[in-house]
Write a protein that binds this DNA or RNA. Structure first.
Length: 109
DNA sequence: ATAATGACGTCGG
DNA sequence: TCCGACGCCATTA
């Protein structure tokens, strides 16, 4: 048996939740993906399903790198997300309260 | 099996 | 730019 597989199973999670969390774990610092981007990349589910997973299990991953398509942070976590974005130099819009999706969006590669 | 839920996305006004 | 209405679909009750 191996020591610790990065993509090892998370027993209590649904297959879809594992796919989401595994992908979020690979988003590089300073880059982001919208809920819709994640669903599209996985080829299953939709933005709301990704949102459900993040709301329930997002605490263990880089949740601030998964945002809404317009560049705004997850509801209720705007302040903390902003600190994270600044800390890892995520490209922000002039106003400074949202991510510049055109430059920060990660395509999965 | 059926219905309700929800960290969304898109479009019209 | 901001807001409301509607569609979406895995999960959960």
């Amino acid at each position: 048996m191996r020591h610790v597989d990065p993509g090892a199973v998370h027993p209590s999670l649904t297959p879809f939740a594992e796919l989401v969390l595994d992908l979020v774990d690979r988003i590089p610092p300073g880059r982001v993906m919208s809920y819709g981007d994640v669903a599209e990349f996985l080829g299953t589910g939709g933005p709301r399903q990704v949102g459900r997973v993040m709301a329930t299990y997002g605490g263990g991953v880089a949740w601030w790198r998964v945002i809404q398509a317009d560049g705004s942070a997850a509801p209720g976590l705007e302040r903390e997300a902003l600190e994270r974005w600044r800390a890892e130099a995520t490209p922000l819009r002039p106003a400074g309260d949202r991510v510049d999706m055109r430059r920060a969006r990660w395509d999965g590669h």
